[in-house]
Amino acid sequence: MKKTVFVGALSAAAFSAGLAHAQTTLETVQNRGELICGSNTGQAGFGAPDANGVWQGFDVGFCRALAAAVLNDPNAVTFVPLTSQTRFSALASSEVDVLARNTTWTFVRDVDLNLTFVGTNYYDGQGFMVTRDLGVSSALELDGATVCIETGTTTELNLADYFRVNNMSYEPVPVDTAAEAQQQYLAGACDVYTTDVSALASSRAAFAEPGDHAILPEVISKEPLGPVVRHGDDQWADIVQWTLFALIAAEELGVTSANVEELKAGSNNPEINRLLGVEGGFGEMFGLDNEWAARAIAAVGNYGELFASTIGDQTPIGLARGLNAQWTQGGLLYAPPFR
């Protein structure tokens, strides 16, 4: 009897170990042949379907780069629209493989929610948008204002802190999604719409009369936005993280979607050679081939190309690089060395 129990325990342990191995995220994605990416419910420039139903945007581009790296196909992605309230539960329950939408890296989210923020792809901050006919030029003039605010966000907490510190009052108009916030703001249900400055710029660009709306100068918080994965799968976290770093490093090194194929043949720059898989065998270290980064760059361009084509100052969103410039250009973008 004891022997049977012991053998049964061993069999159960072996079965559990087999399941654990089978459930690595990389294997799941490769066996499925598709990356499932948690995205916005619709934020122009960052993540939204176009008129043909094809997802486009800055965060969408990152997911396509990741799919190119892992699956050799930037179009092998399903985008799942997630609200601020559903995004973390969807990631935790494995409904999505990665979360790539405007999500702020905070202590509680990183530690208490058992999530892993793999890096920052956009340095942002919270701001305020008002109609110009409100006659307000500073957030310090908003005492008593009604404010449209997405619930379940850091934005909600920052708003309360800012008004408290400045001895001002406000009346919240709670909403569940950015689309609802925009609708309520345009309908006059609130005086002010507050969220990340990038999201305000995205919203304003989609308005019928963008010039009738002003983004106030105050930026009241730090909002480092970036891709998120679950705790416990370091291999997948490394792949997602270094795909982001590959796009950032490519810009610094002058590797673009136009010249990546040529540079794959080899160059006199050892770091470019390591990035593109000519030297070093880096891809093999986390379960990919050595051209993973070259495929990511070919798919969407380097970080600067992706920024310029989706949210840059020549697009309707009209964002300057600012803090999101390379460290060599006065910004905060910095990829660890490929060495």
Rank of each mutant, 00 (worst) to 15 (best):
S89H: 05
L113V: 06
E284N: 11
N158L: 07
I239E: 08
H213G: 02
L200Q: 10
D196V: 05
A208V: 14
P217E: 00
R101K: 14
L26F: 09
S93K: 13
N158Q: 08
A178P: 00
T104V: 15
A214R: 12
P337D: 14
A298E: 15
L319D: 06
G318Y: 03
A12W: 06
E27I: 07
V197P: 00
L323E: 10
A249N: 01
V108A: 15
A296T: 01
G152N: 14
Y162L: 13
A296G: 00
P210K: 03
Q126L: 13
V98H: 04
G331H: 00
F128E: 03
D196W: 01
S39G: 06
E305R: 10
C190L: 09
V278E: 02
F338R: 11
G152Q: 09
L275I: 00
M168T: 02
R87C: 07
T120F: 04
Y185H: 13
K2N: 02
Q241T: 06
F128W: 05
V98R: 08
P174K: 00
M168C: 09
V70C: 05
L186H: 10
N302D: 15
V136P: 11
S198Q: 10
G277N: 07
H231F: 05
L186P: 06
L10V: 15
L71W: 04
G45H: 03
G188Y: 04
D143N: 15
C63M: 02
L332P: 01
D238Q: 07
V300E: 07
N273A: 10
A179V: 05
E218A: 07
N75Q: 15
T177R: 08
S11K: 05
L200I: 11
A335F: 00
T106W: 07
N290C: 06
D238F: 04
L276Y: 05
A12I: 12
P337G: 10
R87P: 06
G47P: 02
G254T: 07
L26C: 11
D313A: 13
D196Q: 12
G119N: 10
T151Y: 03
V108Q: 13
G119P: 02
